[in-house]
């Protein structure tokens, strides 16, 4: 039973946490792809930028000396999301919109997003250096432990407060996005434009407005994901650059352009990564006596070594691209 809880703490909670981050990022990538038809490579850096915006805001709030029952980094997230949405709009206006107006191919926009990546990275490091920052210098990081009322169970289920908040805010974001896309006029307009941009234009849908709303949502969600990731681990300038590929993998896995697919893809990848590096011999040990004589449980029995954790996402990505580029879920993205 203790081993099972170990499995739960390591693999399930780990998978949910990682999956939430991937899902929040992948939704933004997939929305931008659906509306603007290009792979927005700078999305990971918009996440990092969002994390740093929250960090600065949290520093200001902490300076005011008000005590909060929750991490300050989390309290300021709505404001940071607003700022990040504004920045996303500015980035679009400054670097992508002129290219679109010229009728540039999506590939050109992809290269431009590399330029934006480099600018954001350079600026963040210019201002914040290359060091690591923590949101929990002024307040402690709360750990939750749930003791299970079973006999012989000594190991508690444990997770940190930021992890709990991450999962809660992911659920809220996903539900809100769902209602936005299925109930609101603009949300439906967004789906219409992703479905058939020419017909959307013919229907009189204000495509420029839809583009703006897309950037606002993508920027805000990227900020949320970046901040929550920074709260869970720590804030580094290359925080999200390293997970931009898994995020793309998640978006492609779910079928580029499909918001729900991206969320599912995020969680699939999150679990795939944590389960692939999980040491399965932990779960085999209780059955030591029942196993055949010749079978000796090795000390480590993981599918891949933990150094290759990130590689799992890339391998899945490449296999999906080769076997089913439209994603594992229903739908075609052209």
């Amino acid at each position: 039973m203790n081993d099972l809880i170990f499995f739960f703490n390591q693999a399930i909670i780990g998978g949910v946490v990682l999956g939430s981050i991937y899902a929040l990022g992948a939704v933004g990538v997939t929305l931008i792809f659906g509306i603007l038809r290009f792979a927005h490579f700078a999305h990971g850096d918009m996440m990092t930028l969002g994390g740093f915006i929250s960090f600065v805001l949290a520093g200001i709030v902490a300076g005011l000396g008000i005590a909060f029952p929750l991490p300050i980094g989390f309290i300021v997230v709505p404001f940071a999301m607003l700022i990040a949405a504004g920045l996303a709009l500015g980035i679009d206006k400054g670097f992508y919109a002129p290219l679109r107006a010229r009728g540039a191919k999506p590939v050109t926009l992809l290269i431009a997003s590399i330029g934006v990546t480099m600018m954001i990275q350079g600026l963040i490091r210019l201002f914040f250096g290359v060091g690591t920052y923590s949101f929990f210098d002024t307040q402690p990081k709360v750990l939750h432990r749930i003791e299970l009322p079973f006999e012989g169970v000594t190991r508690p289920i444990s997770f940190s407060e930021p992890q709990l908040l991450l999962v809660i805010s992911t659920i809220i974001a996903v539900v809100a996005l769902h209602y936005f896309l299925t109930r609101s006029r603009l949300g439906k307009g967004m789906r219409a434009m992703a479905d058939n941009p020419d017909l959307a234009k013919v229907s009189g849908i204000n495509t420029k407005l839809v583009v703006r709303v897309t950037w606002i949502i993508a920027g805000a969600l990227a900020c949320l994901a970046g901040t929550m990731l920074a709260l869970d681990v720590s804030l580094k300038p290359d925080l999200a650059f390293n997970i931009v590929l898994p995020i793309f993998a998640a978006a492609i896995l779910g079928g580029l352009g499909h918001a729900y697919g991206a969320i599912a893809g995020g969680f699939v990848l999150g679990f795939a990564e944590t389960l692939a590096v999980f040491n399965w011999s932990v779960l085999l040990r209780p059955f030591r006596d029942n196993l055949p004589e010749w079978f000796e449980i090795p000390n480590t029995l993981s599918l891949v070594q933990s150094e290759y954790k990130l590689t799992v996402a890339f391998v899945i990505l490449v296999v999906v691209l080769l076997v089913r580029p439209t994603g594992i879920f229903k739908g075609a993205s052209t």
Partner: peptide, 8 residues
């Protein structure tokens, strides 16, 4: 870090 920004 400036050079990364400049390149972008």
């Amino acid at each position: 870090q400036m050079r990364v920004f400049v390149m972008g």
